[in-house]
Design a protein around this nucleic acid. Structure first.
Lengths: 332, 332
DNA sequence: TGGTTCAGTGTATGCGTATGCATCGGAAGA
DNA sequence: TCTTCCGATGCATACGCATACACTGAACCA
């Protein structure tokens, strides 16, 4: 039924190992034989079995991508460039989502015989990196880090953009600054929060507890958080969101409450997703090269897989900067 | 380095096949032995190699999902439910995107030793289904069909919703009906177009060539198409879009041109994605249970894989209905 | 008591590819 | 002409698991 290298060997009049070598373009096979083998392979429609190859070589050329939530609007812009990069490097992408049972995720990742794992979940789970390290499964942190287990990483430098944003916010006269931060235990959320607070503190502006909200990086958080902040007695004049997706939710809340943006309240995001540029949206946001960062994470992982565990860890940092659009204006 | 069933066998004092049987809970192994094997497996942290299992069993428990464009806003709402369903059925999801070189895609799909493929691309490529059939790789059409090669399918019944929409549009006094259809050679696009035209024809309303635009199901198409239609001398009073994502683009165009929605122009989508419900958006659209449809496609495929090729093909149809929100109003 | 049966386990083998090593034949050098 | 060497190929085997089949011993029946 299925064509194997033996069938090709028979047709080409050579042995099976010669087929293997010929098709992998080994220099130990004569050009004439390669030609015959290739012809036979084409004639039979032979495609090498990845399973056989994996068992024999110990490499699957498959990489796992661990995400928090497949439906989050952030991830398509991560998955796509990673997929493109990995395709070019001849690797496959297998999706995994975080389940409540971390042990099971780890087990699946390992059983899957993945060559490596891209950790793109927001919250830092301390168990998984340890297990991966112990099993010798290469992995890379994407848009997060962990102090506990060292590994390659691709991250945003939030400071530059956040400082720029804070300066501009103050310049526009805002003093009641609200914020919707990301979840606790998420390094990305912490970096952004700290950068914002530090930059504002320079002008003695603080984000008080009643002026802030905290939750997962999703639309719901932005919506609920912004409603809460905007319906307070002294609502903020600007709401800085943990990322663009959260800002979408905040915009929805403002829209629903009939608050003009940026007339009555300014809203700012982080990430500069393609949707932020939509005429409908025109979201002012802190931008960085997400596409490049995703591709970099993928290539870092492949380099780690192919060059081995002895290379020093690389921590790629992507600078951020403010992109002003419509949703940030002068304080009312 | 890596723990195999042999290691477990040695520790448990049994043979390797007994380990295999015990862990797969075969009735041919005594409870006492199972207990010992399980203990040994846990002690060693044994996780069966999927590669070994795949080579031996001929099944990879991996399913390919072929998409047009990973960054399209439609797909997260497809990927997520499929992933959930497949996870419950203990299958993995591997992403593939359509490349220009169809042959290469087919080859990769086959080499990948996938147990089956979910075809979720919009355009009907005639080569791939044939190759999959010839190789005996089970597959399911999702949100599309092909007359040439029979297979299970999960599709929308566009007629009910489109008729409802047409009736409502006419009722609201619209006579200049514009449309942004999906791409040519896409069965989904054709169904929706035909259903709309038929329903309008009953009232002698037609969508002329100058009142329609055609392109891939993406934001760009909606934006470009709507700009073209709206900047014409006699712009339509309503624009029916091939799907919600296209409608996002149309809304962007209307926004940019300063046309009030639905005051000056009504815009309607199809799919009822979660984003359509956003207060910012409030898109009137033709809805169906996309989540269920995606899950159904996945379970149809698994059933096909596990029950074999002799079962009759199943064509699941999901009814559609109009969901009125803000973007459809009376004709100006 | 001998034969039959069956539960439980081991042995042998296959799945498809990659690779270390042996082999072979011809060319080059002595 | 004999040896040496090397390019080209075949042989044997490993990878980890699943499964057909063989085997063993105990229980049961006649």
């Amino acid at each position: 039924m299925v064509v194997t290298s033996h069938d090709v060997a028979r047709l080409a009049g050579v042995s099976q190992p010669t087929v293997s070598r010929a098709l992998r373009n080994s220099p130990k096979v004569s050009e004439e034989t390669k030609r015959r083998v290739r012809e036979a392979a084409t004639a039979l429609g032979y495609v090498p079995s990845e399973t056989g190859r994996a068992l024999s070589s110990g490499r699957t050329r498959r990489i796992g991508l661990l995400l928090t939530d497949l439906e989050n609007q952030f991830y398509p812009h991560v998955i796509a460039p990673m997929h493109r990069e990995l395709e070019a490097l001849d690797y496959q992408l297998v999706l995994q989502t975080e389940s409540s049972d971390t042990g099971r995720v780890a087990e699946r990742l390992l059983a899957n015989s993945l060559d490596g794992v891209l950790l793109a979940t927001t919250t830092v789970d301390s168990v998984l990196p340890v297990r991966l390290r112990d099993r010798g499964v290469p992995f890379v942190y994407f848009n997060r880090t962990s102090e506990s287990v060292a590994a390659d990483s691709a991250e945003v430098d939030a400071e530059s953009g956040m400082h720029e944003l804070a300066r501009r916010i103050l310049e526009l006269g805002h003093r009641r600054v609200g914020a919707i931060f990301g979840p606790r235990n998420a390094s990305t959320a912490e970096h952004r929060e700290r950068a914002l607070r530090e930059a504002l503190a320079a002008a003695s502006v603080t984000v008080s507890g009643s002026m802030s909200y905290r939750g997962p990086f999703d639309v719901e958080t932005g919506y609920v958080g912004a409603r809460r902040l905007l319906e307070a007695e002294q609502p903020p004049t600007v709401i800085v969101c943990g990322n663009d997706v959260v800002a979408y939710g905040a915009l929805n809340a403002a829209h629903e409450l009939g608050r003009a943006v940026p007339g009555e309240v300014s809203i700012v995001g982080f990430d500069d997703l393609p949707e932020a540029r939509w005429p409908m949206m025109q979201l002012t946001t802190v931008a960085f090269d997400l596409d490049a960062m995703a591709r970099r994470a993928a290539s870092l992982l492949v380099a780690r897989i192919e060059r081995g565990p002895d290379e020093p860890y690389r921590h790629e940092s992507f600078p951020s900067r403010l992109v002003e659009r419509r949703t940030l204006g002068a304080a009312p």
